[in-house]
Amino acid sequence: MIGNASPAPGLPARGGVGLKPEHFRDILASAPDIGFFEIHAENYMVDGGPFHHYLGRIRENHCLSIHGVGLSIGGESPLCEAHLDRLARLLDRYQPESFSEHLAWASHGGAFLNDLLPVPYDAATLARVCAHVDRVQDRLGRRMLLENPATYLEFAASTMAETEFIAEVVKRTGCGLLLDVNNVYVACVNHHRDPYAYIRALPPAAIGQIHLAGFARDTDAAGDPLLIDSHGAPVAQAVWDLYAYAMERLGPTPTLIERDNDIPAFPVLLAEAQRAEAIMNEVDAVRPQEALA
């Protein structure tokens, strides 16, 4: 268990934007006043070329979060040590203020499925996920943040709620949480639960970062709403509302705007990051102290 290993000084409690190659030149030219950038670790696991060229320069002037999408922490087999080595090299090179990964799996039997796949919430999975988080934190020598998933299905085998499962991982491993508010909203609509109660059920002190993104609307076989975590649209109003509620409980927290599809011009995303910043500051100004209790 890693107790207080969060690397100082950490991400600032401001808005950030996911770094996309489409915006490299614009960011270097405009030097935006922004809290931080976040990259997907796997995109930068290449030897050289433009990705490292631009990230190196952008990193000189900005805080950085490295967000893994390929560790398969929820996987049935042991973590891929070669992939942990690649991660360790990347973290060593860029010294990010934060490192996060997902409560999901993507690899099985040597195949990488390139999606964040769901796990059942049972004792066996809990033990495996905790062992994997322990291994990540040991190998990387730092505390990681674990992100709550957007899911479309549930497992008959689950014996606990997702929030119970996540809280137990935090308790056993000492990891922090990346609260993806869009994922909370998507999963709670998809499984007919209360997203506000979901946020109340997580340990607030563990939450080190927030993700916000847009979703797409679909319906399931019964005609009920099925939201898809598409990262391809502006943040929805319902998610902004839920975010404001989270900020009331948590206080100002580093907040990332994620956009991976239908990527608009950089200023559009910067404006969403500024909106998040305005909400966290506004809520903080009127927040009663006991809200933290």
């Binding site: 299905l153 549930e154 497992f155 399931d220 076989a221 019964a222 898809i228």
Partner: peptide, 18 residues
């Protein structure tokens, strides 16, 4: 096997998202 939905709808439709 082993997948469920809150409203009892066919999980295949939801699995299709993955």
């Amino acid at each position: 096997p082993g997948l469920i939905t809150w409203n009892g709808s066919d999980p295949a439709r939801r699995f299709a998202v993955y």
